[in-house]
Nucleic acid binder design. Structure first.
Lengths: 366, 366
DNA sequence: ATCCAGATTGGAATCGTTTCCAACGAAGGC
DNA sequence: GCCTTCGTTGGAAACGATTCCAATCTGGAT
């Protein structure tokens, strides 16, 4: 007593009275096949409930038509936006996409090792994840086509933004509003490089912040800098420390919107009015930023994923990918969380939501 | 002039002076291989830069060890949470995961057709997507192991919640606070069934809302129901209509947090104080709900994805999956957006953020 | 010294396609 | 009426692993 095997192309060919080659041709576009034969084969396929094996086809063809994407912290809004952008392009280009989530350096190493040790994907796109020398070496040995988004790696096509310039933009915005004591809340860097999962952007944004302060003459005060784990909770604590200083900052630049939201929370808890007593600016322009009327530096998140995917596709076709480092534009989006010192404007919880053109995950019908 | 082919297992075997079987054994755990041989083979593999073909292995083995997940509107927070939960389990079980995003019914049909027409994944998990008869028939014909999350399909293992009960919970919460005129803002259903992508939950939640109103004696008033496309923008418009009624509701139940946020926005714009003049409750408990101090009905989103994945794995192993319909628990999370009519409490923009134990995409270190 | 069990090993068969080449038939030009 | 030519077709080889069976080797028991 055994299960009858699933029908193969040979079964179809036999029952239809044709050769396997003909069935294969029907399956793939039907070129060089007479209409009568085509219909006959199609009927038999239907009758048998035949389903071609993707594996066998891919093996024979020589390519899995699959790419892998490695992302850190899938649930972060900025990550998802990038992923969605990439998926749209890859889908349209006919690639299956394997998604690898890495919440820890161990998971990152595990996924990267798996992807480089075996030939399972045509190419790999790495998002926001720090790639160490040994990772890059593994990719080069393959050699496995690789592109990165929001992270740099020697010799690898990359799509991203100029975080330093972004840091300068945010700081310049605050300086332009008359602020001189400007605090910074950002991510702490791991003690050992290999413990660092990714998201090195905070460090670069801080660099821009520092440069802009120095260049403008306002001066850089290390006492106004607080670093901690990513997330609004920790950021709120850090902001609390800044607000408790004898001479607290009149504005705070947070390395991400998530952290800026923590800063807003800390201000709220301490009864510090935003933006009259404290201006807050974030970075990324995630959807929640519009909800909270948070001023921020906008970066094209979804587009970054799409561009990365496009470049990976080009790479897979053997086309030249230039420039190696693609930079997407940034712009400050002023909202209600920043203003001149002592200005009477009040931050409203969700005011102006519609005016901000907020959408929630899909284009809205109007 | 041709590129030298990538080395195969035969090349490794030849160079190591062993048979292909031995190399294969080394590759897969190294059972029944002497340590000396193992090291020798490993050395040759390293020397040649040999990478086993996942495709060939999968074909020979008979299973791709891959599952596909179909999700609608990837960027919606609730969807991502479910996806993340599923990925964690599948990863740990050694499956690769292909993610298929469907933003339109056409994309849904395209992905489902591709997954059922060819044998590319061991099993499929469908999240929040409406499955029509022909879709189910295609899966059954395979037969392709299938589980669903947040959507029902005849005879298919399903993980979800009791949306009707959830609707009752939300409504009961408002009734308990003394409200009698309670409005509803939810998703409109497509005119033709095949145009419906998914997210039928709104309809069921409304049903619970209606039942609870009737059972409690408060009565159901169709004039207080407004339906439209999903998203805060449209929801804000609809809420605006409700608030403009001669005898406006004192509370609004929105079918999702995204829509509840739109309702909050509408109230803000019209100067209606929440919760003194209007109570608002949402559904899902996405992260933004905590930020905005939005009362809501909590459902275990991430867990639903994880459970679905677990059940799919069981199915793939031929284990029994019971119960067919798994229901996860719901609970009301009262926050600052609901209160008794005329109560002086004020909604603060981000107040109590920390107390709410908010995390942003990853566990925070404390 | 002989035999046997168990560990190790080689290699052929197999998985289900695609692809290439040779063969065939019909149509059209001369 | 013959020879091209082109569109169709059949079938074998290739893709690169796994797996199974038989062969070999080892060491201990008798």
């Amino acid at each position: 007593m055994r299960t009858p095997d699933r029908p193969t192309i040979a079964d179809v060919a036999a029952l239809a009275g044709v050769g396997t080659g003909t069935v294969s041709r029907v399956l793939n576009g039907g070129l060089h096949v007479s209409e009568a034969t085509r219909q006959n084969v199609l009927d038999v396929i239907e009758r048998l409930g035949y389903r071609p094996s993707h594996l066998a086809a891919a093996l024979s063809r020589g390519t899995p038509r699959t790419v892998a994407i490695v992302v850190p912290h899938l649930t972060r809004p900025s990550t998802v936006a990038r992923l969605a952008g990439a998926l749209a392009v890859l889908d349209q280009q006919g690639y299956d996409t394997i998604v690898c989530n890495a919440d820890t350096p161990e998971q990152r190493d595990h996924h990267l090792a798996a992807l480089t040790a075996r030939h399972r994907a045509d190419g790999v796109m790495v998002v926001s994840v720090y790639l160490a020398k040994q990772h890059l070496a593994a990719f080069r040995r393959g050699p496995i086509p690789l592109v990165t988004v929001d992270t740099v790696a020697a010799g690898v096509p990359q799509t991203g933004i100029d975080d330093v310039a972004g840091g300068r933009l945010a700081t310049a915005h605050l300086l332009g509003l008359g602020h001189r004591r400007i605090g910074f809340v950002g991510d702490i860097v791991a003690r050992r490089a290999e413990d660092e999962l990714g998201h090195a952007s905070s460090k670069r944004r801080m660099h821009g912040y520092r440069q802009e302060l120095i260049d403008s003459g306002a001066g850089f005060d290390p006492a106004l800098v607080r670093l901690g784990a990513h997330g609004p909770g920790v950021a709120a604590e850090l902001a609390g420390e800044l607000l408790a200083l004898p001479d607290p900052p009149t504005a705070i630049f947070a390395a991400s919107d998530a952290q800026a939201i923590g800063v807003l929370s800390a201000a709220e808890q301490r009864g510090v009015d935003v933006p009259r007593e404290l201006s807050v600016i974030g970075f990324d322009d995630i959807e929640a930023a519009a909800l909270l009327q948070l001023s921020t530096v906008h970066q094209p998140l979804e587009r970054s994923g799409a561009e990365g995917a496009r470049r990976l596709c080009a790479l897979l076709r053997g086309l030249p990918v230039r420039p190696l480092r693609q930079q997407l534009p940034l712009r400050v989006v002023p909202r209600a969380s920043t203003g001149r010192i002592g200005q009477p404007a009040r931050l409203t919880p969700v005011g102006g939501l519609l005016g901000a053109g907020l959408s929630w995950g899909n284009k809205e019908v109007t």
